[in-house]
Design a protein around this nucleic acid. Structure first.
Lengths: 124, 124
DNA sequence: TCTCTGTTATACTCATGTTATAACAGAGAG
DNA sequence: CTCTCTGTTATAACATGAGTATAACAGAGA
């Protein structure tokens, strides 16, 4: 299956951030796999109706964060560069504020665990 | 114990967002409780060395998100307005992208559950 | 050579974050 | 009533970032 991009122009999330997130979710759901090519910047820009530079920014961020790399011959390809210690630290910091909000709203630890399982089911 | 604000002027997070997060974490950790007063906008601005309007924006956001309310006599006080269904939905959506990143970096479901428990321990 | 990659440069518009100065209404204290 | 404290509002200025636009470049494959 191929990646389908769904851009919300009225969202407060930046367009390039939406692209990044959807690609990352695609990797997690195994819609795309290690070594797969992503559309060229011009192609994807045309497809979703945005500027080439916005797509390029998304790819640049994904490259810096270690999700893709550039192959002169094939373009941008999925290549996850695992820095697990750093990823664990970042995940924990992001969870800290997310769980604080949840705790304030009376969401229990058990409800969070349940949500985690539900989402991991989505990722097979 | 009182809230201690730690502002990072070099962060890419907006100053008012940092204030919001630290207050929310303070509520979750029970450093501040329902009914407690927050510093006045001018007081807090002076304390952390930023503009009054930046503090005011943080308070306005917290009010809109249902963490505080304004009492004409006492100022801004902690008052969590629970909209649990909405909170659950938002939490799940935020977890989705966070877990996708984690999954890409080979962080297992069990490791996430462990992180959750570690953080909830911080919140007693 | 032609055409496709990503990349770089420049420039413009627009929204947002932050600061600054100022003023206003409501409420408590003297 | 006056003084002083609240939050709130208005206006203006500036820097930064997001997004677009047009254009050009080097590398690689056909």
């Amino acid at each position: 299956m191929d990646l389908i991009f769904n851009i919300d122009f009225h969202s407060d999330e930046a367009l390039y951030t939406q692209l990044c997130n959807q690609i990352i979710i695609g990797i997690a759901k195994e819609t795309v796999h290690e070594g797969d090519c992503l559309p060229s910047v011009r192609q994807l820009a045309e497809e979703v109706g945005i500027n080439m530079h916005t797509v390029n920014k998304a790819y640049t961020v994904l490259k810096q964060e270690g999700f893709v790399k550039v192959d002169r011959r094939r373009g941008v390809i999925i290549a996850v560069n695992t820095d697990k210690l750093r990823a664990l630290a970042e995940t924990k910091e992001n969870l800290r504020i997310l769980l604080a909000r949840a705790a304030c709203m009376n969401i229990s630890r058990e409800e969070i665990h349940a949500l985690i399982d539900e989402i991991y089911e989505e990722y097979n």
